[in-house]
C-alpha cells in the first residue's frame, strides 16, 4: 500500500469516527514502512508477525489513552524507531439552545475539531442557515434530544437556553450522563436559583458539583464571540485537567495534560 492509500484510509476512518492508529518506521531500516491499526483489522506489516503484533498492541493502548509517540523496537537485531499516531474519534460538543452565542460556539468548536450537535425545541432558531458548521441539528425538547445523542466520556455539553423550561430538563438529564463537561449560562443569582430547583427536583449533590455554572473562563467575555471563546477555553482546560488562568502566573509545562512530559 502506498503512503497516500494509508493517508486516505486514516481520513476515511476519522470521518466515520472510527478510532485508528498509524505506525510508521521513522528511524532505521524499512524507513517509512507502515502498519494501520483498525478496530477489527490490521493492514500492512513491519518486520515479522511478532513485531507487527507488538506494534498493534502498543498502538491500541496508545489509542485508548489518546496519545501519540515514537517508541524503540528491534528489527532483525537492529534498533529502529516507530512513530505511533493515534486518531481517536473527535470529541463531541452538544449545544442546548440555538441562541446567538451558540452560533460562534458552533463555528469555533468545529474549528477546534469538535463534532458539533446543536439542539433546540424552537424550530425557527435551530436551522442549518443559522448553524452552517454544525454536524447535526436536532429540533426537539431537551429530554427527547438527550435520547437521540450518544453521550460519552469525550462529550462536552453547553447549555445556553436561558430559560428554565428548556435548560432544567437538559441539565437534570445531562448531569447523570458520562459527559466530560457540563456547563450552563446564567448569572450567579440565576445559577443559585437553578441549583436550588434541581436539588428540589431530586438531583443529588454529587451530580450538581459537576456543573460548570456560570459557564466559561473568567475573561470578561461580553460579545457572543468572546463568550464562545470563554466557554471553549474552559472546555480545553477541563480536557487537559487544568484550572485555566494566565500562563505567566503558572508553573510547569505549558501544553497538554498537566502530567504530560511535553513542554
Amino acid at each position: 500500500m502506498s503512503t497516500a492509500t494509508f493517508y486516505d484510509q486514516v481520513r476515511t476512518a476519522v470521518t466515520n469516527r472510527v478510532p485508528v492508529a498509524l505506525a510508521t518506521v521513522v528511524r532505521g531500516t524499512s524507513l517509512g514502512a507502515k502498519v494501520l491499526i483498525l478496530p477489527d483489522e490490521v493492514q500492512g506489516r513491519i518486520g515479522d508477525d511478532a513485531l507487527t503484533g507488538q506494534i498493534t498492541l502498543d498502538a491500541r493502548s496508545l489509542l485508548r489513552d489518546e496519545r501519540s509517540e515514537t517508541r524503540p523496537y528491534e528489527l532483525n537485531g537492529e534498533p529502529i524507531e516507530i512513530f505511533i499516531e493515534s486518531f481517536p474519534p473527535p470529541p463531541l460538543l452538544v449545544i442546548f439552545g440555538a441562541v446567538h452565542v451558540a452560533q460562534p460556539l458552533s463555528r469555533l468548536g468545529k474549528q477546534l475539531g469538535f463534532r458539533v450537535v446543536v439542539t433546540d425545541a424552537r424550530s425557527p432558531l435551530a436551522t442549518a442557515e443559522r448553524f452552517p458548521d454544525a454536524d447535526e441539528i436536532i429540533v426537539a425538547w431537551p429530554d427527547d434530544a438527550l435520547t437521540q445523542i450518544d453521550i460519552a466520556p469525550t462529550t462536552f455539553i453547553a447549555i445556553l437556553t436561558h430559560d428554565p423550561k428548556f435548560d432544567e430538563p437538559a441539565l437534570s438529564g445531562a448531569l447523570t450522563t458520562e459527559a466530560r463537561y457540563i456547563g450552563a449560562v446564567g448569572s450567579r443569582k440565576t445559577n443559585e436559583d437553578r441549583r436550588e430547583r434541581l436539588r428540589a427536583a431530586g438531583v443529588d449533590e454529587a451530580h450538581l458539583e459537576r456543573l460548570h455554572a456560570p459557564i466559561g473562563l473568567n475573561i470578561g467575555g461580553e460579545t457572543p464571540e468572546e463568550m464562545a471563546i470563554s466557554i471553549l477555553a474552559e472546555m480545553i482546560a477541563v480536557r487537559h485537567g487544568r484550572p485555566g488562568g494566565q500562563l505567566s502566573n503558572a508553573e510547569g509545562s505549558i501544553r497538554g495534560q498537566v502530567t504530560s512530559p511535553v513542554g
Binding site: T3, A4, Y7, T24, V26, S68, E69, T70, F83, E85, S253, I254, R255, G256, V262, G263
Partner: peptide, 25 residues
C-alpha cells in the same frame, strides 16, 4: 494539491524533548 495532480510531502513532529513550540503530531 492532490486533486490538482501535485505531489505532496508530509512533515510530522514525531518526537519532542524538553520545550518545543509545537507538540507531537
Amino acid at each position: 494539491w492532490r486533486a490538482r495532480g501535485d505531489q505532496v510531502a508530509l512533515a510530522t513532529v514525531v518526537k519532542v524533548e524538553g520545550s518545543a513550540p509545537r507538540p507531537v503530531g
